[in-house]
Design a binder for these strands. Sequence first.
DNA 1: GTCTATATCGAGATAGAC
DNA 2: GTCTATCTCGATATAGAC
Lengths: 196, 196
Amino acid sequence: MGSKGDALRQRIVAAADELFYKKGYENTSFRDISDEVNISRGNFYYHFKSKDEILNAVIDARISAFESMLKAWDKKIIDPKKRLYYFIDMLSRNEDEITSYGCPVGGLCTELAKTSHAMQGDANRMFIVFCDWIVTQLKLLGIKNNTKQVALHLLVLAQGAVTISNAFEDKRFLQQEVKRAKQWLDAEIPKYSRDE
Amino acid sequence: MGSKGDALRQRIVAAADELFYKKGYENTSFRDISDEVNISRGNFYYHFKSKDEILNAVIDARISAFESMLKAWDKKIIDPKKRLYYFIDMLSRNEDEITSYGCPVGGLCTELAKTSHAMQGDANRMFIVFCDWIVTQLKLLGIKNNTKQVALHLLVLAQGAVTISNAFEDKRFLQQEVKRAKQWLDAEIPKYSRDE
DNA sequence: GTCTATATCGAGATAGAC
DNA sequence: GTCTATCTCGATATAGAC
């Protein structure tokens, strides 16, 4: 019945996820995806009504993946400040893909803002997942005012670093910005919660 | 002979410039451009060999426009710190277009990073124009160390603010980030050169 | 469920009249 | 120089056999 637990469906979504990231949504064709999954092009339409529906599935899959990733972080890392460090260090850990292809969240939102205005609202839910999680950590650290604004500024620092380091394909610059983001975070966190 | 001073050629470049910004390069067709300029599609190929050549012309035109814009700023504004404020305020002045379509520089670099790797080096020259100009202002303000790194960080703040405010189509957030960028700049500039 | 064919469309690009 | 007509290609999507 093509349910969400369908194995092939999941393989299609996984391949589309990666290709949308590396080539962009519009620039990825069914042929690109079928080459990866080894199915015929016609077979897509048993699992999805349209390309837009694949995009929807990819966005949902990314949101789920981000949510369980953050849950795993929460379990592994107790100190909220170290959690935020770990978030920033995601840029370091993925430096190769980021300097080559940018950010899967920001890149998709930027592309959709220029084309299918309809799907933009779905895509930016990815940002909200991270924003809410950062707000939670900030509150645990004793920050009471403007937590959302501060959380969004951390996303600003990350997205800006991605855009510039991607434009110049410069990993070293990305690392510099990781350092700066951590210093900014240190300054934002009240002293009594530092160096725990 | 289709020289660079050609009036129709310039009209094509101007229309392509705006469309590449608002719809993206790949997503803009010759039909889109011809609708704007009111010429036949075949006529493009008298002025340009290919779509890529139009992109090249657009990048050159943008660089020229940015350079003369910065020259005009230098003439109009004497204080280097106020020049940098004016640079940051560009986000405010263009808030409608930025929250709708992002940044013409960052957006193009991001798109080309995912597709035509060949042209990426041409596109990021747009960033270099701004980076060099910011470095000049910082040196005039007495900053001697890491001027390039500081200049690039200002671009990071701007690009990040654009990405997030564009994703949420949120002008108010953009204004908040403009304020934050100015505060960051104040902290970067040595005291003796402040409040001139 | 997965396949092979095919329909349909719009893209970039070319040829040649005027 | 600008036009109309056309070529070629690759895209999404559909129909129907197996």
